[in-house]
Design a protein around this nucleic acid. Sequence first.
DNA 1: CGGGTTCTAATTGTCTGGCATTTGAATCGC
DNA 2: GCGATTCAAATGCCAGACAATTAGAACCCG
Lengths: 243, 243
Amino acid sequence: MKIDPSNPADLSAQIAGAIRDAIISGGLIVDERLPSEAELAEQFDVSRPTVREALKRLAAQSLIRTQRGATGGAFVNRLSFEAAQPQQITTSTLLLSMNAVSFETACEARYALERACAPLSAARRTPDHLATMRAEIHRQSQPGLTDEAFCASDVAFHRALVDGAGNPVLSYQLAGAVEAMQPLMNMITFTARDRARIIALHTDIADAVEAGDGPTTLSALTALETETQDLAHSVFAARAARS
Amino acid sequence: MKIDPSNPADLSAQIAGAIRDAIISGGLIVDERLPSEAELAEQFDVSRPTVREALKRLAAQSLIRTQRGATGGAFVNRLSFEAAQPQQITTSTLLLSMNAVSFETACEARYALERACAPLSAARRTPDHLATMRAEIHRQSQPGLTDEAFCASDVAFHRALVDGAGNPVLSYQLAGAVEAMQPLMNMITFTARDRARIIALHTDIADAVEAGDGPTTLSALTALETETQDLAHSVFAARAARS
DNA sequence: CGGGTTCTAATTGTCTGGCATTTGAATCGC
DNA sequence: GCGATTCAAATGCCAGACAATTAGAACCCG
């Protein structure tokens, strides 16, 4: 692991990159302890604060964790799906909000990905997943629910559907796509009739999943996408006309 | 933006979190300049190195960029899909390598997601995407290609397919799933006959995409998944028997 | 008056040295 | 032997300073 002092890039970035490469390539294995900050400083011929900045960069990506005390130090983290999801969600949310992605594009992506999970979920979902879906449908039908709460329940419903596929890779990827849509969905006001339609389609999906019927799940999801797109279209059109 | 000195968490982590929240909530907008390190140190009542550690954490997530000089400082980054992809790929790769995800699970997720893009790609791909796919097929048929190069070309082919959908959200999400599979694919040795089968299926996919035929693209993709799974199964079985 | 040059101030990047805090382990007393 | 104490190692944090970079202001000269 070497760095180039004449490189215009920050030393801390170079050091972080070197350590990251070592982790990715397998040179450093999970739970292995890195040299102490003082030792790293000597190895790379930089000061301790510079090493610390590099370690903070890695900590921000959950690649390492630090522990104080006698046997403390920096340790290579086992990157778990649970730990990676919040980061994934944050990044996805910011990507949508900062890049003027249209509702249409985001919605299309989300439903396309969900349809990828639907047949698997219909085949493998546990009773738990199904119970979560039913519970969220019930919550959505409560009167007096705010639009935000309705959207949050919608997200929970769809995440249960995705998790039902029993594939952690899919759950991880979809978490970003599904959660990132929430701020966009929150821009929509749902009338009672809109909610009733959505709840009916959710029920169709839950029924199809319960029956293990992949194709019906797919068509219900597609109907829900159409419904959502139409709803968003009319809401945005009305808003544009009013202003 | 406030921090709690008695909080057991690192001050730099708290500060980074406070600034991150400000960015997510819209309190700080794209390209806005943050206060200088000295000013932030005063605001949060910490030292400059601590502020710097916080800023490095944010820089590691591409949330800010820094610039030296008179009008320099830290600026809120516009998180672009291009900038986010390498991070997404790194994380996905580590998730697979560190969590003993089976080839089967990863492969299933990848092809499920790809199938989500396939109909869209068949409908919208530009001549560029098609040309890339054909070029990669051609490369794959070159004799003397190493297994690594073959896999890399395979990834490029599939990324072109995904990008053909013309949906940046999908491309972003899929980049992680497709690229992360490469290390797993590299564990497989491809015989000439294996390659010929894969190339034939790639050609089927390219033909279907060129014809704008979504269903055929789907079935070709499914055939490719089956082929890949069978291949991996036999390779791993042979390896297990030998040892 | 215009254009190029120099100067200056602001800001980040880095270093030195130090102290505080935490925490496991060794040591000592019983 | 066992518990309490001490110790040492490591991270967390701070103060101050200097170097490097950069944009703009001031200045000089034709």
